[in-house]
């Protein structure tokens, strides 16, 4: 939503600029002040997701055909656990999405993605996060975040991604 607002403003500005370039001296261009667009207030869930992505870390990465958690992945998950166990976040629920790179068959990668998501979940649970707050899903190799076929892209696409999906009160 935030990006849409920015995008619209950007387009308005560039149209005004183009118009200015195409203008000859005889024409008078009246500069109209752009309407101020108010950003809608973010919901609590969106705020939490933003905090997760920008400060906590919402994604952990895996080695090729691996589902063990690297020290970096464990550090990220520790921060996630601390975040989820803060009193003000106690009602947040998350979904962990397991993903794989393209170098494997569809069916095997569905199983591997499930392992990755479950490995991340088990680690969070081990740190005290209530298992009922965590759902998991495997996307196998079907949802790459980097479409390229390079070692760098593959490394990005082997991940478990944590998303805030709701609060427990909303579930009742």
């Amino acid at each position: 939503m935030k990006f849409n607002v920015l995008g619209t403003t950007g387009i308005l500005a560039s149209v005004a600029l183009l118009a200015a370039c195409a203008t000859t001296e005889e024409e008078v261009i009246e500069v109209v002040e752009e309407p101020v667009i108010e950003e809608p207030a973010m919901s609590k869930l969106e705020m939490a997701q933003m905090e997760l992505e920008e400060n906590v870390g919402h994604r952990v990465f895996f080695g090729y055909d691996q589902y063990n958690l690297t020290p970096e992945a464990q550090a990220t998950l520790r921060r996630q656990a601390a975040f989820l166990m803060m009193p003000e976040n106690a009602d947040l629920r998350i979904r962990i999405e397991g993903n794989c790179d393209e170098r494997g068959t569809r069916e095997y990668n569905l199983a591997l993605g499930e392992r990755r998501a479950e490995a991340a979940k088990a680690f969070l649970v081990g740190l005290g996060v209530e298992p009922t707050r965590i759902s998991t899903v495997s996307y196998g190799k079907e949802r790459p975040i980097d479409p390229r076929s390079t070692p760098e892209a593959w490394a990005k696409n082997r991940n478990a991604t944590t998303r805030i999906v709701g609060d427990t009160e909303a579930m009742i």
Partner: peptide, 9 residues
């Protein structure tokens, strides 16, 4: 089928 639960297929 295959079924996966708790990290095991």
């Amino acid at each position: 089928v295959s079924f996966a639960l708790n990290g095991n297929s």
